[in-house]
Design a protein around this nucleic acid. Structure first.
Lengths: 199, 199
DNA sequence: AATAAATATTGAACAATGTTCAAATACTAT
DNA sequence: ATAGTATTTGAACATTGTTCAATATTTATT
């Protein structure tokens, strides 16, 4: 016999709260990867995990909370990638070029995830979010330190590098009909780094 | 006697099509300036000009069309500003610093307009939009030309400069809780330009 | 001047969004 | 067993963008 439920259901406990949160983040991530940030709706995510929108609001305080969770995951992955770069490369220039390379790879391989993280205004900003940002930025800072005497300059240099990477990828996306000729992001990043690494 | 209209109204012709378009753009612009991009809704704009949403769809093919029109106006204003800079300054470095200054001013004085233009993904892209972009970018290109031998390098340099300005302002906005210390955009742009202008 | 055609405007509707919440259910501790 | 707590739902609400038949007005034609 099949259970036909013609009224509201109560607790199912198919998954723990933590498992459910994981499921939601994964489903949301997949939606973003496959159909872009616009497909990340409460109903789409809920359908993907076999629950209703209301359940999501038991896990996240709002849809922005889910976005933040997905972004944090992206940042953690990226932080691991550049940690690897920092360990592999010994020279400052190789480290910085490696970080830039990793950034461009992320943008190219997961454009929608990149877009959700860097090209969609979000004012959620939990403590976990702040930490995830630091997980990345502190390493960039570490890499720019040898380039300058005082730490203030190092921080400024790190921010400039980071800003330029952002900007170049944004420009790339916004110019489907391009300004003049098509310059691949790598070319622009190279142009920048050649100057940036010149003492 | 007051005309009470209890059914659908027809043509009023209070304004010409062109006047109405102007009214809509102006009202939309004001809404964005005062309440941010999120306030730019069809109903808000319609109410502000004393019409209904349907009328807007007679003027623009979609809400993105209205956004594009507002952005084009922002770009035209900015193009005029840097044209003034280009005329006033004679040295390359002064021109580039002037352009950067103007960009930061725009970001600081009209953060919401800046956000609508540069920080909100939009895939409208009419011919008029392309032209407005060129009205700005061609001048940046003109300014970077003396910095490099071949035109390809000049174009790349212009794009790098432009990307960095974008990125720095984005970073500024996204970091209400800041990464490390607060670095004013001017400081970062200076850090960048000092390196950029070094031959 | 009368009539026809074109245009402008509306209100009402549609689908989709985020979000809330009482009701109902199932699990947990007593 | 019973009471209490946590979870899940469905239905609702307000807001989006957008469409469109109906209507009113202006313009063109006869």
């Amino acid at each position: 016999m099949f259970k036909i439920k013609d009224h509201t259901m109560g607790r199912r406990k198919d998954h723990s709260r933590e498992e459910l949160t994981e499921l939601a983040i994964d489903a949301g991530r997949t939606l973003v990867i496959e159909k872009g940030p616009a497909a990340l709706t409460a109903r789409n995510v809920a359908r993907a995990i076999g629950y209703t929108p209301g359940t999501l609001y038991n896990l996240f305080e709002s849809i922005d909370g889910l976005i933040a969770a997905i972004n944090i995951r992206s940042m953690e992955t990226f932080a691991r990638t550049i940690r690897e770069v920092m360990r592999r490369e010994t020279s400052t220039s190789a480290q910085l070029r490696g970080i830039a390379r990793a950034y461009l790879d992320f943008h190219q391989e997961s454009p929608h995830l990149w877009s959700l993280l860097f090209a969609s205004p979000l004012d959620y900003h939990s403590e976990a979010y702040r930490e995830a940002i630091h997980g990345i930025f502190d390493q960039v800072l570490e890499a720019t330190e040898p380039l300058s005497a005082d730490p203030d300059t190092a921080r400024r240099k790190a921010k400039v590098l980071w800003s330029t990477l952002h900007g170049i990828c944004l420009l790339q996306d916004s110019s489907k009909l391009n300004v003049g000729q098509q310059d691949p992001p790598e070319t622009l990043v190279n142009e920048f780094l050649n100057q940036f690494l010149r003492i």
